[in-house]
């Protein structure tokens, strides 16, 4: 076991972890943050995508022990973040999910695309989503939801207008 200290969704945590424990398994089991999903466990499906130090990463291809000193943000950690709020509403309105397995990572990837200004067209959104696999929707409604959220996020919250 190795001692690590990290911040998860704003809370500082000190823990001991075995070297082989992935960040995904660490979040899901001892931390009980089960919104992070594991599909393929080799970096292809994208279901485990979370933010480490503000950037999306595959938590199945990241060791918990290597995150000592890092800031981790999972789908549970977005609270009233305005872009995530716009995304949640747009996914709801546009029916951007069916079974929901891919949804947390879809939201996190979409959040990053909007943050980096890479959600300006359908083509750009589809390219940005290539690393997140959905087996239900055929992507059409997910892409539409992200496009809608990108427009809403650019306008800002209604009370700011």
């Amino acid at each position: 076991m190795t001692a690590i200290r990290l911040t998860i969704n704003g809370t500082q945590i000190a823990d001991d972890v075995p070297a082989r424990l992935s960040l995904a398994d660490y979040l899901r089991e001892p931390r009980n943050l089960t919104g992070t999903h594991l599909g393929c466990e080799h970096g292809v499906c994208g279901a485990c995508t979370i933010l480490v130090d503000g950037e999306p990463v595959r938590s199945c291809l990241t060791l918990a022990v290597a995150c000592d000193g890092c800031q981790v943000r999972t789908i549970e950690g977005f609270g009233s973040d305005p872009v995530m709020t716009a995304l949640r509403e747009a996914f709801h309105r546009r029916h951007g999910l069916q079974c929901g397995f891919c949804t947390p990572a879809m939201l996190i990837t979409a959040h990053d695309l909007i943050r980096r200004g890479r959600a300006a067209s359908e083509t750009e959104i589809r390219l940005g989503l290539a690393g997140n696999i959905c087996r239900c929707t055929g992507y059409t409604n997910i892409v539409a939801a992200i496009a809608e959220a990108a427009v809403a996020a650019a306008k800002g919250p209604p009370d700011a207008e």
Binding site: G43, V57, L61, T109, G128, G131
Partner: peptide
């Protein structure tokens, strides 16, 4: 090259 989440690491 791969996907953004891969490229970040």
């Amino acid at each position: 090259l791969a996907y953004r989440a891969i490229r970040n690491r």
